[in-house]
């Protein structure tokens, strides 16, 4: 009797959300996968015929004809992966010392500083990037200050370069690295450091042999959380990279809004989703196992 009542309650509680996410979240993903296997329509949209060459196009061939071999898409893919990877390194290098710093602060300060560091996450993406446009453009803050200080003779180009994209992405994704890294740094037991130095380890040895291995789960989580949105970013390269630094995100956007090859855009999105699943799977396998170990 009680079991049945529980079941009714569970259905009432979970029914609406199942229905909603089933239709409006899983549904769209399924439709996108179907679209990736359809023939592109002439003026956007699709023809309902099975067509798998959109997948081949990423590697450079269209319609199965090797003569159209073009590395451009593979190149864009590789560039995105490279920039996303560099961005992981940058955010890690910035956030790890900051996390150690916050850990050493008096308790009452910590919550407030963590709040300050994560607050920009809630500030509109477009506002944060606007700030960097103002800083980096030729007549912008950076160039004006350097000119004013007499450090450079004439403004140098930094906007619309990979450097600008990396700065913007690192700035935007900082909280995603900071929070998981800080969560694992905060848990470090101080007696471990003492033990390490008592046993004669130098502070550098302690850092690499004790601190880093123990915070690896946080580093890994932060890396996944930064890598995925970096890879698919299209607003940052659009505003700070211009036409020169094209990333997968821009390519996907173009397929839907200007090139009007929806199946190809869907293929690129499916690939992104596949990479995401792969990374999360690796993360769960490796880190999940690490955390269950005593």
């Amino acid at each position: 009797m009680a079991v049945r009542r529980d079941r009714v309650r569970l259905t009432v509680l979970l029914g609406p959300v199942s229905l909603f996410l089933g239709i409006c979240f899983v549904g769209p993903l399924v439709v996108m996968i179907i679209y990736s296997l359809l023939e592109p329509g002439l003026y956007g949209g699709v023809e309902w015929n099975f067509y798998h060459w959109s997948y081949g196009r990423i590697l450079g061939w269209a319609d199965g004809e090797w003569e159209d071999f073009d590395w451009v898409y593979a190149e864009i893919f590789l560039r995105s992966a490279r920039l996303a990877f560099i961005n992981v390194l940058i955010t890690l290098a910035l956030c790890y010392p900051a996390a150690l710093w916050v850990r050493g602060l008096p308790r009452r300060w910590r919550l407030f500083i963590v709040f300050l560091i994560t607050l920009p996450f809630f500030i509109s993406l477009v506002v944060r990037l606007f700030a960097w446009v103002l800083i980096l453009r030729p007549t912008g803050f950076l160039n004006s200050s350097l000119l004013g200080l007499g450090l450079i003779e004439e403004p140098f180009d930094i906007i619309f370069t990979e450097t600008a994209v990396l700065i913007g992405m690192a700035y935007v994704l900082l909280p995603f690295m900071f929070l998981p890294v800080y969560a694992s740094v905060e848990k470090l037991d101080h007696s471990l450091f003492e033990a390490s130095s008592d046993l004669g380890a130098s502070s550098i040895q302690t850092f690499f042999r004790v601190t880093v291995p123990l915070t690896l789960p946080g580093i890994a989580a932060g890396s996944v959380l930064v890598f995925i949105p970096s890879l698919g970013n299209f607003i940052v390269p659009d505003l700070l990279g211009g036409a020169k630094v094209l990333m997968i995100g821009n390519l996907i956007e173009q397929q839907f809004l200007s090139a009007r090859n929806w199946p190809f855009g869907a293929v690129l999105s499916v690939m992104m989703m596949a990479i995401m699943f792969l990374l999360i799977l690796i993360y769960l396998r490796r880190i999940g196992r690490m955390q269950t170990r005593p």
Binding site: L14, L21, C24, F25, V26, G27, P28, L29, V31, M32, Y35, G45, V224, L225, I228, P229, L231, G232, N233, F234, G249, I252, E253, F256, W262, G265, A266, S269, M272, M273, M276, I280
Partner: peptide, 27 residues
């Protein structure tokens, strides 16, 4: 399964979700 389903939209790259929704609404 439900836990996984609920975490998925948060890690999904925005652009993938945006495209999927666009294609869904149009279809």
């Amino acid at each position: 399964f439900y836990q996984g389903l609920l975490y998925m939209p948060m890690v999904m790259p925005d652009i993938v979700l945006g495209i999927a929704l666009l294609v869904f609404f149009v279809s």
